[in-house]
């Protein structure tokens, strides 16, 4: 076995970052700001936490570039899948009871 030596990352430092980001995530869902902003912030923080785990705990930062590319492929494919689903989703008309009641109300006024 060939031992590849690299300096030991600051594991506890990463742990504190993960903890702080988790607390921030929970706090932000109760913040009085727009839902879209909350969603964007939550996704940003989740991806940051996932990257910290991959880079430092899974030692991806110290691996060959090709291993990093292997790890990024699923993320790219997932983004691709979301873009492929978007045309269908944007054509959907919501049929919730509230939406239907609102539509009926609008028709009744005319």
């Amino acid at each position: 076995m060939v031992a590849v030596h690299h300096e030991e990352p600051n594991y506890m430092g990463v742990f504190w970052w993960l903890l702080v980001l988790t607390i921030l995530e929970i706090a932000i869902i109760y913040a009085p700001i727009a839902k879209l902003v909350i969603v964007i912030l939550l996704i940003g923080m989740a991806l940051t936490k996932a990257s910290l785990v991959a880079l430092y705990y899974m030692h991806l930062k110290f691996e060959a570039r090709t291993v990093g590319m292997i790890a990024v492929v699923p993320l790219l494919l997932c983004v691709f899948l979301i873009f492929m689903l978007t045309p269908d989703l944007s054509a959907i008309v919501h049929h919730s009871p509230k939406a239907e009641a609102a539509a009926e109300g609008a028709h009744g006024e005319h």
Partner: peptide, 19 residues
């Protein structure tokens, strides 16, 4: 990861489509 990615993408799509 692709299995989980597919599950989460499907979750997002179903949720968006639901009223």
């Amino acid at each position: 990861a692709m299995s989980f990615g597919g599950l989460l993408a499907a979750y997002g799509a179903i949720r968006y489509a639901s009223g």
